[in-house]
Design a binder for these strands. Structure first.
Lengths: 364, 364
DNA sequence: CTGAAAGCGCTTACAG
DNA sequence: CTGAAAGCGCTTACAG
């Protein structure tokens, strides 16, 4: 057992503490104070702050102890100025679904715990002719270390190009690879479409409809493609007149379903590209005096809160949104240490069975 | 008509442009470049950037023109270092409702358009023993210019005290005044409770129930107090056994309603402290084989998206959440120019009549 | 109305 | 393994 030698003489600690007490409220200890008390140069203090390996073990201990006593926290602004970037991760979003946004927000914050980074947010509007300029101003003025882009903003190549030009890192969240692998978190929505198709097919459905999201969201197309692929595996296909246009809103789900129910030969099952629209399906069916799943089976996508607060509860495809946010931020930050590895993160959605799907009704 | 004298000689502009072209991609013009081309000191350039009045009209024009040609944008980090605060407004939140959070987010961003500020967010958890420390780290490391607090975090006096100690500005959003007037945006939820009571009373309801939110949210108490006050105006009162505990979640609305419906003498109307729980009421009533509003009338609170995506659509109290966010950020920023005026911003919720309320059923 | 100089609190080639 | 000095890009008492 080695004897632990006290790193600091007691009276030094006392000196520091009384110096601290005398410090005005609006002042905080700086790197210079640490250097002075530790009797090293600020260069060395900087080294231990930044975890440089080129510091003697004894020196590091000494400095660390002073840092602790002083409660020293390096000034983020000053570091940012010297490093030429801030300690901020940005989120640029335009998804109108609050739960999506909040899930992403929380996933990112999860990844930011215990490091010096914080999260700044910027909502953009792709229909605004100046949205790129506004986003650029967000990224550039705050000198963001990195930014995560979510759909549909993430699908805009000009946006991505603009960020690259600023020199900030970025990661795009999307349902398909749109960029270099290390810049992508892809949510394999196609797989979700396949699962939905398989489930309908297993139960014996033949006439099956799809309610699409807005064409500006790539996810809607991916979900449809997967759905078709799954149906094909069972020798089924979806007829053109059974594809309805929606825009991911509840109301558009209602509207599409009204058209669907007016068909002479009605589909027995419908896959809605998100839960909001699936909830709209439920409502439209009820208004028509019909029932889910007896008259029409429905599968949604997302598995957000709404899926369990409607009746019957939605069978749906669960997508791990918060996890996606966490992965995106983690990847951004990981580029600090290792140089960007080439792998691409991918998440897979899965089927959650609840009460909105049953076997097709008997033909009369 | 005065002849407009060109402020800059043509060849100067050419010189600047070719200098710009020669600038490496990772470099941007600084205040020094502006000063050099404008042939003034950087002190003067700083003055025009910050809108000081102590600058000659001609000088200002000259400098502004150079700024435009160069596309000069002052470095936020550097200004922050000199000003001792960043150009960031922080949001500290813990409200679990995504729509609430997103509405506040967007209200704040509305207020931040066309100024140099951006929004940073921090979710906190009051049940975490270190939540104050974590929030302090957020505020202090980023040297936030100001922070807005939303319920229930806003109701925590220790949190507010901590922020005051850091020297950052803050504004609290709450349903009642908890701090100096200039630090409050109060949403007068009590008024909403009164409106709900009046509406029930008008239609002739007598046995009326309340489903409360969590006791940690002051709003739940305010809504109940207002509700009681409104009932009293009509000579009515709410019986103790007709007050049900909820926690603002859909599930708790279901649970409370199950208890409510099991009563031998059932209330004919219920005021749920938010829309989520009101949607839960709807579901529980339906499961029981009863109907809204025929068997039970229900009023919610918030008027979030869910209010119109359930059936029947909810009669509810609309609270202008986004506006509240905008007011909070505007107030924070307004303290830059004028010294804090003493007034207190207050918003008033209002009744939105839809289909979930009817006259009480006839007694048998 | 305008400016030279110091300061905000860090990091970094370079030298040793 | 360690340091003196310059630099990041701004603002600000003070003087004139």
């Amino acid at each position: 057992m080695r004897k632990k030698t006290p790193v600091l003489p007691d009276d030094l600690e006392d000196t520091i503490r009384s110096w601290l007490d005398a410090l005005p409220d609006n002042k905080k200890p700086t790197i210079n104070d640490v250097a002075r008390f530790a009797q090293v140069s600020k260069r060395t203090v900087s080294r231990v702050i930044n975890g440089s390996t080129l510091v003697g073990e004894e020196t590091r201990k000494q400095v660390s102890e002073i840092v602790t006593i002083l409660g020293f926290e390096p000034d983020t602004q000053a570091r940012g100025l010297a490093f030429r970037h801030s300690f901020l991760i940005g989120l640029i979003y335009d998804n109108p679904n609050p739960q999506y946004v909040v899930n992403i927000l929380e996933g990112i914050q999860e990844a930011l715990v215990d490091n010096e980074f914080e999260l700044a947010v910027h909502r953009c509007d792709r229909s605004d002719p100046n949205f790129i300029e506004k986003a650029r101003s967000f990224v550039e003025r705050q000198k963001l270390y990195g930014v995560v882009l979510t759909p549909s903003a993430s699908e805009d190549d000009r946006l991505a190009a603009m960020i690259r030009a600023t020199g900030s890192e970025y990661v795009r969240v999307a349902s398909v690879a749109l960029d270099e692998p290390h810049r992508m978190i892809v949510s394999n929505d196609r797989l979700g479409g396949i699962s939905a198709a398989n489930y309908f097919a297993e139960l014996g459905h033949q006439r099956i409809a799809y309610i699409a999201g807005p064409p500006t969201f790539r996810s809607s197309q991916e979900r449809l493609d997967g759905f078709r692929e799954g149906l094909a595996q069972a020798g089924l296909e979806i007829r053109p007149q059974h594809i309805f246009e929606g825009d991911y809103s509840f109301e558009s789900g209602v509207g599409a379903t009204e058209r669907l129910l007016s068909l002479r030969v009605r589909p027995t099952a419908v896959f809605a590209a998100n839960d909001e629209m699936a909830a709209g399906v439920l409502q439209a069916v009820r208004i028509r005096g019909l029932r889910v799943p007896d008259d029409l089976s429905v599968i949604g996508f997302d598995d957000f809160h709404i899926a369990t607060s409607v009746w019957p509860r939605l069978t749906t495809i669960h997508s791990p949104t918060q996890e996606i946010g966490r992965l995106a931020a983690t990847r951004l930050l990981s580029r600090r240490n290792k140089g960007g590895d080439a792998s691409q993160d991918e998440t897979e959605p899965w089927l959650v069975i609840r009460e909105s799907v049953g076997p097709p009704p008997h033909e009369n």
